[in-house]
Simulated assay, not measured.
Amino acid sequence: MQLTDIPWFLMIAGMCLAHDGFARDGNPPDILSLTTDAKPAEATIEDVAWISGIWQGEAFGGLTEEIWAPPQGHAMVGMFRLVTNDQVKFYELLTIAEEGNSLVLRLKHFDPGLQGWEEKDEPVTFPLVEVSSKAAFFDGMTFRKLSADTLQISVAQRGKDGTPGRLDFEFTRGKDLTGE
């Protein structure tokens, strides 16, 4: 079965549930998790500034776009959208912010009418496990800078049968918002 054979809404539901229900030691090898007694990695927002930019790709049978603003105020803000058959299927609002001596990634999903999928005060949260100049490993989600113009995001998930799996999104650097 290929990524395009699975309805997008089932895959996104799996992504949402994957973080909360995933065994801490059950992630694919290059998607790291914090053990229950581990502390998040030390980092500042400048350590992940390389994520900023306009990123475009294809997934779930449609076009994907992830836009990250540069660091400001010890945080970055991003948005994701999926467009299939010229219709928005869903949005995500994301932040990466300094918390203590580390970083935490938070996200919320929204339908095309901006109705939230998660409870009002409950974002999906991914603490930082490890960071380098080309990779940021959050608990269950990995950002990798494959080249100056290629960003890969990998998310841990569980299959219907409970087996560990992953979703990989590959983005290329897009044009700026003015089309240039």
Rank of each mutant, 00 (worst) to 15 (best):
I45H: 14
D47S: 14
D47K: 07
D47Y: 01
V48E: 11
V48H: 02
V48L: 08
A49S: 15
I51A: 09
I51N: 07
I51K: 06
I51L: 14
S52P: 12
S52Q: 13
S52N: 06
Q56W: 03
Q56C: 00
E58A: 15
F60G: 08
G61H: 02
G62L: 03
T64L: 05
E66S: 08
G73L: 04
H74N: 12
A75F: 00
A75L: 08
M76W: 01
V77M: 09
G78H: 01
M79C: 07
F80E: 06
R81G: 06
L82C: 06
L82G: 09
V83S: 04
V83C: 00
T84N: 01
D86P: 03
Q87H: 05
Q87Y: 03
K89P: 01
K89H: 00
F90M: 07
Y91G: 02
Y91F: 10
Y91A: 03
I96N: 02
I96E: 01
A97D: 14
A97C: 15
E99Y: 02
E99L: 02
G100E: 12
N101V: 00
N101R: 00
S102T: 13
L103C: 10
L103V: 07
V104M: 14
V104P: 09
R106W: 03
R106P: 11
H109I: 09
F110H: 03
F110R: 02
F110Q: 01
F110P: 04
D111M: 00
D111V: 05
G113L: 15
G113T: 14
Q115A: 11
Q115T: 10
G116H: 11
W117G: 07
E118D: 07
E119T: 13
K120T: 04
E122V: 08
E122A: 04
P123V: 06
P123K: 09
V124T: 11
V124A: 11
F126M: 09
F126A: 13
F126S: 12
F126Y: 15
P127G: 13
P127N: 10
P127S: 13
L128R: 11
V129E: 12
V129F: 14
S132I: 02
S132G: 15
S132H: 08
A136R: 09
F137D: 14
D139I: 05
D139F: 00
M141C: 07
M141F: 01
T142N: 05
R144I: 00
R144T: 11
R144V: 08
L146G: 02
L146C: 03
S147K: 14
S147E: 13
A148Y: 03
D149R: 01
D149V: 07
T150G: 15
T150V: 15
L151N: 10
Q152Y: 03
Q152S: 13
Q152F: 03
Q152H: 06
Q152M: 14
I153Y: 04
S154Q: 12
R158F: 06
K160Y: 05
K160M: 13
D161F: 04
D161K: 06
G162S: 00
T163H: 07
P164N: 04
G165H: 00
R166E: 09
R166H: 08
F169W: 06
F169I: 01
F171V: 00
T172V: 11
G174C: 14
G174S: 13
G174I: 05
K175N: 07
K175T: 08
K175C: 04
D176I: 01
D176G: 06
T178P: 09
